[in-house]
Amino acid sequence: MADLTIALAGNPNVGKSTLFNALTGKHQHVGNWPGKTVAKQEGKLIIEGKHLTIIDLPGTYSLSAHSPEEEIARNFIVCGRPDAVVNVLDAANLERNLYLSAQILETGAPMILVLNMTDVATARGLQIHPEVLSTRLGIPVITMAASRGQGLSELKRLLATLARTPREAMVGSSVCA
């Protein structure tokens, strides 16, 4: 069985890289996105015999392709057909972060929401109801405080249950190249 591909998407400064490091450890490879000067972070995670390739997408506020970073993130989510998009959100700034989630939602890609920095949100007196998000959107929602290592094992457990979603074969294209 071929590797499953997982994309990490989210706004800048939401702790995406910390999560990427926590998931992949030393098994990282840094290159460039084809034709772009933006760094491409790729790593491996083996969990319960399952091989996962994890791609850290550039941090963006939207998928509207106004910048090279947005274009890369969008192309990978839409054309790279990852087996799951892990959308990392800053729980303390939930509404702004959900805008990107809404756009990922529109691509129809399989997704998992990770509400990171819940400790900061709680300190600001914000009460988050992940179960509401999960029921409304119909996808798994995990709360996390990556800096303290909370929620990481839960995400790993979820990733271990992933199965390849049957989808049409990929065709190359200039935008999707």
Partner: peptide, 21 residues
């Protein structure tokens, strides 16, 4: 409309403190 959708979603998933700290 996307902002409104997100706003409604956030309103359901988030209880903000009455007096912001």
């Amino acid at each position: 409309q996307r902002y409104r959708f997100v706003h409604d979603l956030a309103a359901q998933a988030l209880t903000r403190p009455k007096t912001p700290s």
